[in-house]
Nucleic acid binder design. Structure first.
Lengths: 117, 117
DNA sequence: ACAATATGCAAGCGATCGCTTGCATGTCAA
DNA sequence: TTGACATGCAAGCGATCGCTTGCATATTGT
């Protein structure tokens, strides 16, 4: 559980990897070479990013001859939603109104800690 | 956009920080000291984790005297859903069936690359 | 007033990360 | 069969991360 979550969030933590996800979303099934174009990085860099995405099960790979095709797998994203977003969603409106009330009741919003005087 | 996404995903990338989110979900509004209990880490470690969560706008802070209270803010999680999960969700069933068809059509599932012979 | 409490700030350090470079291996096309 | 192409593997390196230790500052209670 927490292990799969770790691979997932780690995989999504890098902007380059999120960009790869975006490019696959725009055009699924691209080869490594295609993914490297218009991407300011060595092929090896892209390969290593793709390996992490693959380890997180976010992309599936299919070999066609010497070419490696990459396909998005949205299932783990759905699991993130179930475990992390739906769980916190219920509190959303309530938490917001609670916070509002708390801030109204306290005399100062108090972001800075040190005493002003 | 991509900047806020970066803070968000980076903040969620660490299991300790996700654990803190969980503990706040179980009991919102805890002080730093309370969050440190039952957590195998120095207070400073927890402080630094909380700072990242705060920078990602995932928790809000309210000072009550010398105590720092921490409250969950689920809004950024909702934004992750909108930008990253709903976007990919539409393809989910279609992508799965497509992958299934592709795998059925190819003679071998072919995870290993090197020629077997 | 003063001691205990709750927290902040900053430097240091090993571990991991992101990326590159160099070379090896498998596949296609003439 | 041979050269071009698409990709893999591994070592290295600076940057960032996660965490600790030591000391400073603000608040509470007696």
């Amino acid at each position: 559980m927490s292990d799969a979550d770790d691979l997932l969030f780690k995989a999504l933590a890098d902007p380059g990897r999120r960009k790869l996800m975006d490019r696959l979303h725009a055009h699924d099934g691209q080869t490594l070479g295609e993914l490297c174009e218009h991407l300011d990085m060595t092929r090896q860099g892209v390969t290593q990013h793709l390996a992490l995405l693959e380890a997180a099960n976010l992309i599936a790979v299919e070999w066609r001859g010497r070419e490696k095709l990459h396909f998005l797998n949205p299932v783990p994203l759905q699991e993130i939603y179930d475990r992390w977003i739906a769980k916190f969603e219920r509190r959303r409106l309530k938490a917001l109104s609670d916070l509002k009330h708390r801030l109204e009741d306290s005399d100062a919003p108090k972001p800075p800690r040190r005493r002003p005087s």
